[in-house]
C-alpha cells in the first residue's frame, strides 16, 4: 500500500486518540488541583491531596492487602502458568486443546461470574472470606495471561539447548533448573509483573470475596460515594497509573529481552549449522 494515508483517515486517528486519552489526561490535572470539587476550571497547584493519602490509615491497610494479594497471585499464577505453558509448548498429549482451552476460559468469562461461582462455594463450605479467597479468584483469572506470555517464551526456546544439556549428562530436573529456566526467566518476570498488575487493579472479584480484608479497588469504590474524598482519590489514581506504567514498561522490556534471548539463539544456531 502507499505510505501516505488519506487525510480523512489521519484526522480520524488523531480524534480517536483524543477520545482514548480524554479521561487519563484529567487525572494529573485534578490530582494537583487546589480545589475540593472535581470540575473545571482549575484553581491552583497543590500537593495537599498526596499529603492526605499519606495520613489515611484505612488506605494503607487496603494498600497492604492489595500488595500482599497481588504478590501471592503473581507467584501462584506464574507457577501454574509455567506448568501449563511448558506442557503445551513441549509435549503432545490427548485432550491437549480441550485442557488448555479450559484453563483459558476465565479470559472470556465475565468476572462477575467468577466472583459468584467462588462465593457460592465458599458459603457452602462455610469458609470465611479473607485475602486468601481473593487470591484464589485472582490466580484463576491471571493464569491464562501467564500462560499466554510464557507459552511464547517456551515456544521460542531452542530445543537443541535442552537436548545438549541432557546429552552432557545433566538430569531432567537439572536441565530444567539450569538450562530451561534461565532461558525463560525474562518471560517469567514479564508474567509476574502482568499478573501483579491485573490483581492490583481487579475490582469485582475482590468486591465479592474480600470480607474484611479490603483491597485498594474496593476501598476506592467505597470512597467514590463521598465527594469530599474524590480529590485524594484522583491523587491516588495518579500514583497508581505511574506505578502500573512503570511496571508494564518493565514487563515489556523483559518480554522483548526474552524474545531476543531465545529468538537470537535459534537464529544464530541456524546460521551456523545451515
Amino acid at each position: 500500500m502507499s505510505s501516505r494515508p488519506p487525510k480523512s483517515l489521519l484526522t480520524y486517528a488523531v480524534l480517536y486518540l483524543i477520545f482514548l486519552y480524554a479521561p487519563v489526561i484529567l487525572l494529573p490535572l485534578f490530582a494537583f488541583n487546589d480545589s475540593a470539587i472535581i470540575a473545571l476550571p482549575l484553581s491552583g497547584f497543590t500537593f495537599h491531596w498526596f499529603g492526605l493519602l499519606w495520613d489515611t490509615k484505612a488506605l494503607h491497610e487496603a494498600l497492604y492487602n492489595s500488595l500482599l494479594i497481588a504478590v501471592v497471585t503473581a507467584i501462584g499464577s506464574t507457577t501454574l502458568g509455567i506448568f501449563a505453558a511448558r506442557a503445551a509448548a513441549r509435549y503432545e498429549f490427548p485432550g491437549k486443546r480441550g485442557i488448555v482451552g479450559f484453563i483459558m476460559v476465565p479470559l472470556v468469562l465475565p468476572e462477575i461470574i467468577v466472583g459468584v461461582a467462588l462465593i457460592v462455594v465458599l458459603i457452602q463450605l462455610g469458609l470465611s472470606l479473607s485475602a486468601w479467597t481473593v487470591i484464589i479468584g485472582h490466580v484463576l483469572i491471571c493464569t491464562p495471561f501467564s500462560i499466554a506470555i510464557l507459552q511464547s517464551a517456551f515456544n521460542n526456546m531452542d530445543r537443541s539447548l535442552e537436548e545438549a544439556s541432557m546429552d552432557l549428562g545433566e538430569s531432567k530436573i537439572g536441565t530444567f533448573f539450569r538450562v530451561i529456566l534461565p532461558l525463560v526467566t525474562p518471560g517469567i518476570i514479564s508474567s509476574l509483573l502482568i499478573s501483579f498488575t491485573i490483581s492490583l487493579d481487579e475490582f469485582i472479584i475482590a468486591f465479592f470475596l474480600t470480607g474484611t480484608d479490603v483491597t485498594l479497588p474496593v476501598y476506592i469504590w467505597g470512597q467514590l460515594r463521598f465527594p469530599a474524598r474524590l480529590p485524594a482519590i484522583m491523587a491516588l489514581g495518579f500514583l497508581m497509573v505511574s506505578l502500573s506504567f512503570f511496571l508494564l514498561l518493565t514487563a515489556e522490556y523483559f518480554r522483548r529481552r526474552a524474545n531476543r534471548l531465545t529468538g537470537n539463539h535459534t537464529r544464530s544456531d541456524n546460521g551456523i549449522f545451515q
Binding site: 486519552y21 479521561p23 487519563v24 479497588p217 476506592i220 469504590w221 489514581g237 497509573v241
Partner: peptide, 8 residues
C-alpha cells in the same frame, strides 16, 4: 490510557 485503574 488503559493502564489506569478501571474504577478511576
Amino acid at each position: 490510557p488503559f493502564w489506569t485503574s478501571y474504577l478511576i
